[in-house]
Simulated scan of single mutants.
Amino acid sequence: MELNLKKVDIVTKISKEDFIKNYYKKQKPVVVKQFTKEWSAYKKWDLDYIKEVAGNKSVPLYDDRPIDPKAKFNSPHAYMRMDKYINLLKNKPTKYRIFLWNIFKEVPNLQKDFKYPNLGVTFLKSIPTLFFGGYNSYTFMHYDIDLANIFHFHFEGKKECILFDQSQSKYLYKVPNSLIAHRGIDFSKPDIKKWPALKNAKGYITELEHGDMLYIPEGYWHYMKYITPGFSMSLRSLATHPKNLTHALYNFTVMIPLENLMRKTLGEKWMNWKNKKAKEDTDEIIKNIAV
């Protein structure tokens, strides 16, 4: 049995009025094909160009290994020069990904290559971030700590995206005191017998190609899988729903400090308890639904 996913709406162009009315206010995702074609980045940005302008930069890398119980929240697994990392991406499959890297602080001229979209929202202009991945690498199903509205622009190759809104959290085996679903789940081909609650989750799926923009509404869960090596840029707009703003504040002021403390004091015991609790609690929800 596959996940219950419907296709994200795809449009070839969109006005500010249509975006606000049909997607932003409804908190519904949408893909705008070739959105960046008027940007300099549309013609310039590929892996070779990034290697040329940022090859000497040291970049933080993440992969799909289990979280180090002693590591702080979102700690990278390794560092590598960007030129060596891009060579790795292009020459063979790798699980290493770049996650939430603000390249513009180190290569400010790249900011001239794009424009903030005129879509009727206010962007956080201090934190545009880039994400890179190799063939078949993926991010775990998660939602962002600030529950922001995300505008995700893809460059080079193809990328698969699976999305769920916050109302589906109870079916996704959310790990306590975290922003992720259980890491044992492969959302590309999940084992429904092992993770039965997933059959109740309703979400969206789409693919992105060079130049496409995906709007991810505030607080949405997202899983990203690189069909080919490539990279994306995210721009953010603050959450506006009071519940999401409260949730974001809690994440920064309570969740992260508590997580770092528990990892430091309990280490692996804490991580094992969280993963066990995620499955037990979610399976209990399914039992109650069946009754």
Rank of each mutant, 00 (worst) to 15 (best):
I185V: 10
Y143L: 10
K287E: 13
D212N: 11
D68S: 14
Y171N: 03
S237K: 01
E2C: 01
K37D: 05
W39A: 11
N22A: 12
I216R: 02
G267I: 08
D144R: 03
N22C: 11
N109K: 14
V31M: 08
N22K: 14
K269G: 00
N288T: 07
R263D: 02
F114Q: 04
I86K: 09
Q168Y: 03
P176R: 05
Y42R: 10
T139R: 06
P217S: 07
Y204A: 00
K279E: 10
C161Y: 15
S40F: 04
S169T: 13
A248Q: 00
I205Q: 15
K25H: 05
P76M: 00
N87D: 15
H222K: 10
S232A: 15
L245P: 00
F104R: 03
L214A: 08
L100N: 09
I285C: 02
Q34L: 12
Y135C: 08
M1V: 14
K90S: 14
D191M: 07
D113H: 15
I216M: 06
K16C: 12
L3C: 12
L238F: 07
N74V: 03
K105S: 09
K84Q: 13
Y143T: 06
T265H: 04
T253L: 15
T228Q: 04
L245D: 01
I185K: 08
I185P: 00
L172D: 06
I286C: 04
D48Y: 05
K6C: 09
D68V: 04
A239K: 13
K13R: 09
Y143N: 07
L238W: 01
D63S: 13
A54K: 06
S137K: 09
K26S: 11
Y96T: 08
I162N: 06
F99C: 10
F35K: 08
T206R: 08
S40R: 13
K26N: 13
E52K: 15
F153L: 12
S137R: 10
M82T: 13
T36F: 09
Y24Q: 06
W221Y: 14
N102V: 05
N272Y: 05
P117T: 07
I162T: 12
I256A: 01
K51D: 12
G203R: 08
R263K: 15
N118I: 03
D165F: 11
L163R: 09
P29N: 09
P60M: 10
W101D: 02
L214I: 12
N102C: 00
E209L: 07
V30D: 04
K158P: 01
Y223C: 02
D18T: 15
I20R: 02
W101T: 00
K70E: 06
I150H: 03
Q27F: 02
Y96P: 01
L198R: 03
W270D: 12
D18V: 15
A197M: 12
E38R: 09
N149L: 04
E209K: 14
F132T: 05
V291T: 06
H182C: 03
M141V: 12
Y215A: 02
H222A: 12
N260V: 07
P60I: 10
Q27G: 03
T240H: 02
V107K: 14
P108M: 14
H152E: 01
K92I: 02
W45C: 09
